[in-house]
Amino acid sequence: MRQLSNLSLVVVLLAVSSLLTMVLISIAVYEKSHVDSDDQTLPVLRATASGNTMLVHGLDLPAFSLIERNGEKVTNAQFFGKVWVANFIFTRCAGFCPVLSHHMRHLYESLSDNPHADRIRFVSISVDPEFDTPLRLQQYAAKYNADPERWVFLTGQRSAVWLLCRDGFKQTVEEDPGNDKMPIFHTSNFVLVDADGKIRGFYDSLDSKRRGQLKVDLERLVDELNTLPVAADR
């Protein structure tokens, strides 16, 4: 009986020792991850075969050429050296487009005093380009007091815009003819792009927490960019 009791005690002590070891290891791992997290750079995204994304390097935006509200051509090369946020809207949308533009304006205004605001851009792309002429985009942009030097509104050929949205930005856009308010269904995401033209994150602009995270991540990229020389438009 005494041998059995001693054996039970040994088993209990071993179990307690193992548990204590696991706790200490967990604490060490947590502390290391907590300390190192601020030193990690924001990941770059790459599309997978399933259409999802992984936190690895690789998702470059393709070259594009669209028309700004002032009638001038704008290409992706003009954003090299800048950190920028893109979204998709259309001016006759009676769904969530005005909300998206409101949130974009809030982000735009909140970064106006950033010491590196000259290296931040905002890009709204119309998914209804046949209707959204440069003049209509001018009128729409005026509602949001958008400075054309910092916030551009783009239109172009529908096929090119939709291809860019789907294959370039990996976002949804499709016809929704039964929806009078939004005959074109499209993403509510804001897309964060770095100075090298790589996508760094997708953020649901209808989610306040994700909008807050976007601002944090954008400023983080700008801080990283500030350690490099200013790149001329290419």
Rank of each mutant, 00 (worst) to 15 (best):
I199N: 04
S159K: 15
V127R: 01
S159H: 11
R92N: 13
T48Y: 02
E68Y: 05
L228I: 05
G201N: 08
E149M: 07
S205P: 06
T133W: 12
S205I: 03
L221C: 02
Y144T: 06
L7S: 00
A86Q: 04
N189M: 05
V56D: 07
P43C: 10
F88I: 07
T75R: 01
F96V: 14
P115C: 04
V193H: 03
V216P: 00
E72V: 05
S33V: 08
L59F: 03
G71L: 07
A94C: 02
L137Y: 09
L206T: 14
L206A: 12
K209G: 07
W84L: 02
T227A: 12
D132C: 09
E31G: 00
R210E: 15
L45W: 08
E68H: 14
D204K: 12
G51E: 12
V222K: 01
M22E: 12
M104T: 09
V56H: 04
T187F: 09
E219Y: 02
L135G: 02
L214C: 09
V56C: 02
A77C: 02
Q157A: 15
R46S: 11
L61R: 05
F80N: 02
R234M: 08
S50N: 13
A15Q: 05
H106W: 01
F169W: 10
R119L: 05
R220V: 03
S37T: 12
N87S: 07
T48W: 03
G58A: 07
A86D: 04
M1I: 00
G81T: 06
S101I: 00
V191Q: 08
F64N: 04
I125E: 02
C165S: 13
Q213R: 15
N52T: 14
A142D: 12
S5W: 00
F122W: 04
T227F: 05
D128E: 10
M54C: 04
A146H: 03
A94S: 14
K143R: 15
